[in-house]
Design a binder for these strands. Structure first.
Lengths: 327, 327
DNA sequence: TAATTATGCGTAAACAGTTACGCAATCTGG
DNA sequence: CCAGATTGCGTAACTGTTTACGCATAATTA
């Protein structure tokens, strides 16, 4: 005996008009007098009529919802790089009145994610690059002709992406170390961060050929143990660039616990500038990527594609060195 | 000339069967032989047929999507309390194959959010308590008979909620200070954190009557300036409970910059145990709320309601004191 | 073996909208 | 003042599913 919600037919008949007119009052298509439109809108508020989402999307073949797919998180570890991008995305879609879905991209959830992008429920997707799953998902979207923008560098077809100039950011760090009289640089980062290492090298200049490269993963613990390894392998190291802020925080923690002064004995620069970076002790000198802007730009790009923009080209987020206390 | 996606009619006729049979192959209702089901599934994969989301949801009147509404974020400030809960929610919905929408709840986005919950596009909502908007949204959901669980304490009607025992958590902190010989306690927190203050008082015991209460807001800056105020107003203060971890981090930063040793001169305990807490220097002693579990429990609760569970009652997340270096 | 029940599947009626088309009525220009 | 254009609105044909109902056929029971 649950009473059904008011539908367009019932609503229209109560007003003594046709469903077409009601529909026109809300949409942008079709001719309708301003007077009747206002009348209908007002009546819809008092009677509580609201167009059914699914019926509308079924016939118009679009939903306006955008889906954001993020890489697997490591249990117990800070995931602030992703969350800050995500909030950027969320804020921007909210402004545009686009509902936003978010989905973690585990191997196990792959089927579900594919279904989401194939069943017609969404109008566009944003995917962070870096995993096999994300690459596969982008391919699926492409085959389905679904608007898609990727965040970060993804090899393969030329897809619309917002990228960060990791190389230049790292170069800035290298240059800064050089300019502040550091002699013996090290770089901590995972295998995906080669661009950063190269940029760092270039920035530091000729003497950087003997740069210490520690294939360091990406977590706090990775930073911590990298520090121990570095101090053992090359105690003369006096400056280090870490591929992200959490790595840097781990590195610093280890250095301090070993009686090493930061930045006195060893200067460290992080990467990303997550929001906590400025509040850490010592406040982190880091390469800022404008994480929230990344989210914003992605959705604006996506919006252009969704609105039919042909060959929309990607964008690069510029980065800058934020000098604080750790270097 | 864009080719339309394969629909059930076309798909069925290619297999020489009726649409009803196809539909039965995917759903759980209706009788169908295992043989034909397998045949249909297999053909659907090779031909690329997939049930249209909107058509299906239109007729079944449910979408399985859950929406998460979070409070406004402060620009530039860490929002890790929310993001960690959100990831908990996201992980849990993903496991259940429920698409998750996330929406910031600004006053300006209120209309949009209401529309989202009234247009039939979602099957349940999770809302964080604490703002006027969230209260209003919950009311709207209730009127629409939409399953809803709130995170935190919300006054008014008895809605299904997962709450944290803030009072007990704070008590633990007070007791710990007392047991470790501290004499002069202070509490830093906003107006919404009264329960914590009361619990703290109770935990510390008789001498806590002269507790210093600083109505301290919730940001790093608030923690920082609270510290300055506290040290001026009551220099003998030797322990402080902060209503969240970021506050604590701000407080510690200020204390250290004033030459105050932590925890030597003043011990500080945070609240929430966001993931960065253990990596801060000094590692934060804090009341752990199990943020990810909160997310998980909320969606499990919501799921029970969505599945028709009558009078599902809320849950309380228990908290524990995690002793690290700051106290 | 006949009567009864169970199974598998097709027909067609929902679900709740949008919009092409057509028809009056009104407006515009010569 | 009349032909043609414009405007406002209704009729009905779509969108792609699910599922109640009914009809054969197969399995079970008496």
């Amino acid at each position: 005996m649950k009473k059904r919600r008011l539908n367009i037919k019932e609503f229209a008949s109560r007003l003594g008009i046709s469903t077409a007119t009601v529909s026109r009052a809300f949409g942008t298509k079709g001719r309708i007098s301003e007077k009747t439109r206002r009348m209908i809108i007002s009546k819809s508020e008092s009677l509580g009529y609201r167009a059914n989402y699914h019926a509308r999307n079924l016939i118009t073949r679009k939903s306006h919802v955008v889906a954001f797919f993020y890489p697997p998180l490591i249990k117990g570890e800070p995931d602030y790089f992703i969350s800050e991008i995500m909030f950027g995305v969320s804020g921007a879609t909210s402004l545009n009145a686009n509902p936003l879905q978010v989905h973690p991209l585990y191997p196990e959830s792959m089927d579900f994610c594919k279904d989401v992008i194939l069943n017609g429920s969404i109008s566009g997707i944003i995917v962070t690059a870096g995993t096999a799953e994300s690459a596969e998902l982008v391919k699926t979207a492409r085959n389905a002709a679904l608007p898609c923008v990727v965040i970060g560098h993804m090899s393969g077809e030329n897809n619309c992406a917002v990228t960060f100039d990791n190389s230049r950011g790292a170069m800035l760090a290298g240059k800064y170390f050089k300019d502040t009289g550091r002699k013996c640089p090290a770089y901590i980062g995972g295998i995906f961060d080669r661009r950063k290492r190269e940029g760092f090298k270039a920035g530091f200049g000729p003497h950087a050929s003997n740069i210490l490269f520690d294939n360091g993963g990406s977590t706090f613990q990775d930073g911590f143990s990298s520090c121990e390894r570095v101090l053992k392998a090359a105690p003369e190291t006096d400056c280090v660039l870490c591929a992200n802020d959490i790595l840097a925080i781990g590195f610093i923690k280890a250095a301090l616990s070993k009686g090493c002064k930061v930045p006195g004995d060893i200067a460290v620069i992080g990467f990303d500038d997550i929001k906590i970076a400025k509040y850490f002790s010592p406040a982190l000198t880091t390469v800022r990527l404008h994480l929230d802007e990344i989210g914003e730009k992605s959705v604006n790009l996506l919006k252009r594609i969704m609105d039919g923009g042909k060959n929309v080209s990607g964008e690069s987020i510029d980065c800058e060195l934020i000098v604080r206390d750790s270097a």
